[in-house]
Design a protein around this nucleic acid. Structure first.
Ligand SMILES: Nc1ncnc2c1ncn2[C@@H]1O[C@H](COP(=O)(O)OP(=O)(O)OP(=O)(O)O)[C@@H](O)[C@H]1O
Length: 658
DNA sequence: CTTCAGGCAGTTCTG
DNA sequence: CTGCCTGAAG
């Protein structure tokens, strides 16, 4: 073996890579924590550590490699496999248990389903479908008409999910995060109990269940033993963004911490809305015995000028993040604060800059536009399309979450799992003349014949005429015909019934969906994988599977974590966007500061923060107005000297409250 | 029982 | 602008 994976690492990084593995040890080493700032090579070190394990003879099957987001998981797995290939001189193939907590959880739960007395062919509901199921229960219990202020389906699911992920009693969750809903404690408790029962009865899982049942497996000694033996090495990236439930899983897998490596940066904790808690990483050395802690201080990513600005932003925090980051990368210019008139000016400015950079030899794929929330890029997307700049968008409304896509998928889901009432409801409501109550009636009549979806002509509800017969025949055909022919057939049936606007655009989306689906070998495989690993892309002009080689990236800051680009542009660096106007408590504002820090530290060579002087916003009394903005409070005058301030449009900057 | 118009409130980030 | 609820018409 060559030592490729050690050669370019610095001394501290190398120590982390080989920790516990200087010579072939009898058992996995003591727990290792790498806590270090942005761009110091944490992920690089972690993936080289995996390579080192493989090179030392550890089987890929014994390695569990976890992260929080799909993007980060893909990136890390890719790096590890590529380097391992170089070091070992053979293709490593894959690391089977590498991915997000949820994806790995899904595999394990399916594998051990029988021992958990679960049926192994459960389907996983995405966020929207889970909310719909919860809403059905909410209506049945009469809570929807109890009081206008009773939390809606999304709030209910948020509360439920927070409770599960934070491992907190409902009462405490309501008190600390949803005080307005405290008076419904009793109802919410009942709602959640019934929701769990409904999931059980319909053999469906929500995202949280994947973690819940994984944690449960670790309480069953027989399964726990198997898993502990299987995963001799467990590595977690972005550990600062894990939650209590995930920590429980980690400690359940490795009670004494041997073989555990966790990596993270408390200054980059940005997922508290998913119940992530930074205490996981800060308390790690106290929770496990004999933890080796390694700090990295040299930033290899950014120029010193960019890094200085990043440090200035994070150091204004009331909390101390003890990091002394430095960089010896040559300077290529201070980051800029580009003051533009409004949204449109922001879009044209960025589009021009991107094309200019491209002319200078920076390909589109080395540039990225980041934003706090995904709709901030609307104007820009139009501008990019106008100028034929190819882009892909990370985050935001997913292809599979669009209404028309969900409509056709619902029929497939129902066929796959006849007990799935959300799918049944949605599919039935597509028929003209069938609304919620007729659909419920049909579903009720089906209770007896559960194995396989069987519809009879006699089940016809009143008032939907010919459509019922056609539907029954369609279902029969779909059950007989091979999978490849299914989706086009459903689409053909669906299009004339579609009630959404923009029919041509949606028809095109559905055509694309057929192409994507045809690469899966069966309906089951398609439905199983699609919820956890959805195809890239969003609805509209930029569809999954169609990306250019050289493609600009538009991304939310959350989805950009762990990534890096030569040029980074940040949209709307103004109060109300960063920090978001929804951040109220000091803790929430601090998280917004860290978001800005994460965004800025993605840049290697050039960084532009956009400051539009007016943005569109929604005022309390409906209508859309554009408001005067203030530059983000996280970049006060005192930090200005670290930036170049560029005013691009004629008008002088006027100070006005928003 | 479905559908559609009108009123009203809320609008982040992800698996 | 959307999603959700309500009430009236078909
Ligand atoms: N010893 C090194 N020498 C040269 N380049 C390095 C070294 N270590 C890491 N790098 C490079 O620095 C960049 C940042 O590394 P990496 O993404 O692993 O950092 P990170 O600490 O995970 O960052 P973040 O927390 O901000 O996502 C990468 O391009 C990586 O290849």
């Amino acid at each position: 073996m060559t030592l490729d994976h050690l050669k370019h690492m610095n001394k501290t990084q190398r120590a982390a890579v080989v920790h516990g593995y200087k010579s072939a040890p009898a058992q996995p080493g003591r727990p290792l924590l790498i806590i270090a700032g942005a761009g110091t090579g944490k992920t690089e070190t972690l993936s080289n550590r995996v390579v080192h394990f493989l090179a030392s003879g550890v089987s890929p099957d014994n390695i569990l490699l976890l992260t929080f987001t799909r993007k980060a998981a893909q990136e890390m797995t890719r790096r590890a496999i590529a380097t391992a290939g170089r070091v070992l001189g053979t293709n490593v193939g894959e690391i089977p248990y590498s991915g997000t907590f949820h994806a790995v959880g899904a595999r394990l739960v399916r594998e051990f389903a029988e021992q958990l007395s679960l049926s192994p062919n459960f389907t996983i509901k995405d966020r929207g479908d889970s909310a719909d199921l919860l809403d059905m229960v909410r209506h049945q219990l009469g809570f929807s008409t109890l009081d206008v202020n009773f939390p809606d389906k999304n709030q209910c699911l948020e509360i439920y999910s927070y409770k599960i992920n934070a491992c907190m009693p409902l009462k405490e969750v309501l008190k600390s995060r949803y005080p307005a809903s405290k008076k419904w404690t009793k109802q919410l408790r009942q709602l959640f109990t019934e929701y769990r029962a409904a999931k059980r009865k319909q053999n469906v899982f929500d995202y949280d269940d994947l973690l819940v049942y994984w944690a449960k497996m670790l309480n069953q000694p027989d399964i726990a033993d198997q898993l502990r033996t299987r995963f001799s090495h467990v590595l977690v990236d972005e550990y600062q963004d894990t939650n209590r439930l995930q920590a429980k899983i980690l400690f359940g897998l490795k009670p004494d911490g041997r073989g555990v490596t966790v990596v993270g940066d408390d200054a980059q904790a940005i997922y508290s809305f998913r119940a992530a808690t930074v205490e996981n990483i800060l308390d790690f050395p106290q929770v496990l015995p004999k933890v080796r802690v390694i700090n990295l201080e040299q930033n290899y990513r950014s120029t010193n000028q960019i890094l200085k600005a990043c440090n200035a932003v994070i150091n204004l925090s009331t909390r101390a993040y003890a990091k002394n980051l430095w960089s010896d990368r040559p300077n290529l210019g201070k980051p800029s604060l580009a003051v533009v008139e409004n949204d449109s000016a922001q879009a044209t400015y960025i589009a021009s800059q991107i094309l200019r950079a491209k002319e200078e030899g920076i390909p589109f794929r080395a540039q990225a536009v980041l934003m706090r929330s995904s709709h901030h890029s609307q104007k820009l997307e139009i501008e990019l399309t106008k100028r034929n700049i190819p882009f892909e968008k990370w985050g935001g409304v997913k292809f599979l979450e669009a209404a028309h896509i969900k409509d056709v998928l619902s029929l497939l889901r129902w066929l796959e799992n006849p007990r799935d009432e959300v799918a049944a409801m949605r599919a039935l409501k597509l028929l003209p003349g069938i609304g919620p109550s007729a659909a419920m009636k049909v579903i009720g009549r089906l209770e007896g014949r559960m194995g396989r979806l069987v519809l009879r002509d006699a089940d016809q509800p009143r008032g939907c005429g010919d459509h019922w017969g056609q539907f029954v025949r369609l279902v029969k055909r779909l059950q007989k015909r091979p999978w490849k022919a299914s989706l086009p057939e459903v689409v053909k049936w669906y299009l004339p019934l579609m009630k959404h606007d923009n029919p041509e655009l949606r028809a095109a989306d559905l055509g694309q969906l057929c192409i994507v689906a045809s690469s899966y070998s069966s309906r089951e495989q398609f439905l199983v994988e699609v919820t956890l690993e959805p195809p890239e892309g969003t609805v509209g002009p930029n569809k999954p599977g169609r990306s250019d080689d050289d493609c600009l990236v538009l991304s939310t800051i959350h989805s950009a974590k762990g990534q890096e680009w030569d040029h980074v542009y940040l949209l709307n660096a103004v109060d109300g966007c960063i920090p978001s106007s929804r951040a109220k408590t000091p803790a929430e504002v601090e998280e917004e500061r860290r978001l800005l820090y994460v965004a800025m530290t993605r840049a290697k060579n050039r960084l532009s923060l956009m400051v539009p002087q007016r943005v569109f916003s929604w005022r309390q009394n409906s209508s859309v107005v554009d408001l005067f903005t203030r530059r983000s409070q996280f970049i006060p005058r005192s930090a200005e000297k670290l930036f170049v301030v560029r005013a691009t449009s004629g008008k002088p900057r006027t100070r006005r409250a928003s």
